[in-house]
């Protein structure tokens, strides 16, 4: 536990605050597999929803209850564009991170969507340290064809600080991704992620609906050679996913995602 906390907190940037989890958000570049949670990865993906939805996700990072992570999102379609809200908390009474985000997205044309999100972050170690910050992220999605989508996402382009110390800065993250719907059931995507002061991370993933009610996701992140996967079941409007991530040094991170069923436009 101490080792993991040390790893997380000794990083020069508070990158652990960033709600980046490809196992959950892989569908952002798909027109068939996109879901309500996809906007967490790229806000432009909000435009693919057509009815109200909500989801809750819990992940026990590296199988340690002290860094339990809980996120919730709400997605609301409107005639002027779609709105999203996310809230998340990680940690325990002696260490916690909280984030709240408000997102908005709309279509500029049939081929181009754009979205943005405003975030509030809080990082707290009681009786020792507390900092808070706001930032912005912007995403766009381009549909080259009914099967091929690409997107660009920028997190914290203005390099907002979390507190006064340079060590507590929020990193900027640039992401470029491409997704291809091989069929209505099978989707592949890849992302190139550049986070400030980190090596380029190549992310690859697939999602396969192998049965009317079952699907799985599988992928990797090259920067730390970690794997992610999920197995999901769909029942009417409810969708339940068992998440599983593996880091070669820090171990396994199990999780659970419960969401309603978002219809696609």
């Amino acid at each position: 536990m101490l080792q993991v906390l040390f790893v997380l907190t000794s990083m020069a940037q508070i990158s652990s605050l960033v709600n980046y989890s490809p196992a959950i958000n892989i569908g952002a570049y798909s027109q068939c597999q996109s879901d309500g949670y996809s906007f967490v990865n790229n806000q432009a993906a909000l435009t693919s929803i057509e009815c109200f939805g909500m989801a809750v996700c819990q992940e026990k990072m590296f199988n340690l209850s002290e860094i339990n992570k809980v996120d919730a999102i709400v997605a609301i379609p409107t005639s002027l564009g779609n709105l999203g809200c996310s809230i998340g908390r990680k940690g325990f009474e002696g260490f916690s991170e909280t984030n709240i985000g408000l997102a908005y997205a709309r279509k500029l044309s049939n081929a181009i969507s754009i979205g943005t999100q405003f975030n509030y972050y809080s990082f707290k170690i009681p009786s020792y340290f507390h900092s808070a910050s706001m930032n912005i992220e912007i995403g766009t999605l381009i549909r080259f064809s009914p099967k091929l989508n690409a997107g660009i996402h920028v997190f914290n382009p203005v390099r907002m600080m979390s507190g006064k110390n340079e060590d507590n800065k929020l990193p900027y993250i640039y992401t470029v991704g491409v997704g291809y719907d091989v069929s209505n059931d099978f989707f592949i995507c890849t992302e190139i992620v550049k986070q400030e002061d980190q090596a380029i991370d190549l992310v690859g993933g697939i999602q396969y609906q192998f049965d009317k009610r079952f699907f799985f996701k599988l992928g990797f992140m090259s920067e730390n050679s970690s794997l992610f996967s999920s197995l999901g079941v769909v029942y009417k409007s409810i969708r339940l996913e068992a998440l599983f991530r593996y880091h070669p040094q820090l171990g396994y991170s199990p999780g659970l995602l419960l969401s309603n069923h978002f219809k696609h436009k």
């Binding site: 091989v182 069929s183 059931d185 697939i206 192998f210 599988l218």
Partner: peptide, 12 residues
């Protein structure tokens, strides 16, 4: 080995 579509195969 899984044939996930007519034009795609995956292998784990």
């Amino acid at each position: 080995l899984m044939s996930v579509a007519n034009c795609a195969d995956i292998h784990l």
